[in-house]
Amino acid sequence: MTPSQQVAEGVSPVRRFRAGGTGGFGSNILPLAAITVAVAAFLAVTQPNFATSSNLGSILFGVSIDFLAIIGFTYVMVTREIDLSVGSVFALTGMLTGSLLVADWSFWPAALVALAVAALIGFVNGFLVVRFNINSLMLTIGTMLLVRGLANVLANNLGGQTYPRAFRQFARTDLFDIRITIIIMLVAILGAWVFQRQSALFRKMCFIGENVRSALVHGIRVGRIKILAFMASSVTAGVAGIFTASRITHADTQMGMGLEFVMVTAAIIGGASLYGGRGDLRGSALGLLLLALVLNGMIMYDIEPVFQQFVIGALLIATVTFDTVLNRRAK
């Protein structure tokens, strides 16, 4: 907290409090959890199909895969940048792994090559943003289109072929009778808890998001940390993409479409901000879960699936409005 006070001189006490203080940090987790439980309870009471183990299991499975992708994304948002290319990187990595496997590679080399490609994309994003001081929203829209195009090239080459059997089974790997991705999610949340409470790196990220200039003056390697965050975002999106490709068993051009907006919405619901300096992986996970419950509920209530797009857009605007208005109050 002491360096924070030095850095945050001239920023109002409220903002400092919410940025890094022990009381403010993660303070919206409990209300968010309460809302999520309330939505789940409402659906469980009104819809008999909701509380079945298969439905809950598939919701949790889906959330746990998306969660892998939001890990890096949340930390990019903490440094006051954004990475809209996650959905495309997610698709590209999954399809690249799949097509390498179809070309008779074995699993680990294929996955590692695909993840290296993802890391490269993240590096390019981060490097361009840092070096040329570019608005990351704009730049990553460009890389989103570019990478999406490359992913579609791969999908076209595969032409609806299914991936090898071993790879199709991969996402269904169980550990203690629970899907492995769910276990990874739980471990990652515990890890994030420690990371966010204990590590200097997370604190530095918060400073960068709060005030880049003073972070630079205080000798924080802003460029390096931002590039690292972008790489983490692409790699985690890639890992999720590999699981998803295995889950949907074939190349699909729709894979990861609009994922970035789901993630922005979930991250902001979970306590991150477009204005940087904040972010909580536990909250992001809850945000994803809440969104998944809402979408699942809409399906239960027979609301047209095409209407989901409308709801995602509306939720995005609503959460960002909330975020902006809150930020203005704090200043």
Partner: peptide, 16 residues
């Protein structure tokens, strides 16, 4: 509110 987010959200809603 950030104009990129607003107009992207509206893009999604309108397409819906």
């Amino acid at each position: 509110i950030n104009h990129l987010i607003v107009t992207l959200g509206v893009l999604y809603m309108t397409r819906g």
